[in-house]
Amino acid sequence: MSLTGPLAAPGAGTGRSGRVGLMLRGMGRTAGPVLAVVAALFVIWYAAAVWMNSQWTLDQAARADRTVTFSEIVADTLNQDRPKLPAPHQVAVELYDTVLDKPVTSRRSLVFHAWITLSATLTGFAIGTVLGMLLAVGIVHNRAMDMSVMPWAIASQTIPILAIAPMIIVVLNSVGVQGLLPKAIISAYLSFFPVVVGMVSGLRSPETQQLDLMKTYSASDGQVFWKLRLPASMPYLFASLKVAIAASLVGAIVGELPTGAVRGLGARLLSGSYYGQTVQIWSALLMAAACAAAMVGIVGLIQRVVLRRMGMER
């Protein structure tokens, strides 16, 4: 893959670029600055909440025909029922209520909804990864397959394939397939293409010298694959797996939108937007963000362990 070639899943709706990720790994001592930036974000969030919700407060006061002081405005804007922008502590309270304070089997528990979405995400991710790796192996070992399929796999990253999601859900619904599987299929095809592209670059990454050495050992195609190409592809595979799992989550969430599903994080976003429950939207959004971060983190952890065991850690 050339230096400027994107290694990301833009067709899937996340913007993680592999090269920036590599760059970040080299940067140490970031805890202080990151904390400062996060703190600044919270300050901005609070200020924006006061500013955006103040209109409602002023309207209410005007209706009741009384004037409000600035401190009253601040107090009110941070504690409205349906604020335009909920304050961080309101979202935190909602998260506490729906994550820790409800039984996980209840429909009001966010853990329950997150699990619905995560199960589809992980199923689809597993399917997409396995199929993607198989296709990559085929592409590397078969010239006709390489020339026929590879251009389409790359081109597919430039088109918004996420737009097909509603149709897949509804069509599968009409032939009687419901629940987890349609969402998993969307997740699978979103994770499929980044894995194919990354794995092909990985399997092609051994240098001519290394391949020649295998040849002097008179290694068979299978031996070259198992002993050289597959191990060499691991760093590339993991880079695309991180992209793919984030894409899978986006797919599962968007897959919950079109049928008006009542379960899952996407359903929480949708019902929140129907009923103007902004706090619910924000808590679902943060939960989705936490899930994405956790899954990318877990893949990263596995990556570190595997690469260290293989002696490839950079």
Binding site: G13, T14, G15, R16, A246, I253, L285, A288, A289
Partner: peptide, 8 residues
């Protein structure tokens, strides 16, 4: 950039 920003 790695988060499901589409949720916003």
């Amino acid at each position: 950039a790695a988060l499901p920003i589409i949720g916003t």
